[in-house]
Amino acid sequence: MQTIDLRGVTCPTNFVMAKLELEDIEAGTTVEFLLDDGEPVKNVPRSLKDEGHKLLGLKEQDGYYTLLLEKGAD
């Protein structure tokens, strides 16, 4: 599974990067994003859901979050 590390990237750049990464991935594929605590984790998952992707899980470990997402159809 592909892991996209967005730690250290601030809003809204992290969301735009996630969006660009997802463009090259096939619908139905599961991807993992690493997100910083604070604003990034509050905003990015919700915005990705608004774009039509399916959120499978969001877990905190060692001060950052791992978002598990299934790419939605365009």
Binding site: K42, L55, L56, L58, K59, E60, Y65
Partner: peptide, 10 residues
Amino acid sequence: CIGCGLCAKS
């Protein structure tokens, strides 16, 4: 709910 805990934290 997927139990992420963000709401409680926010």
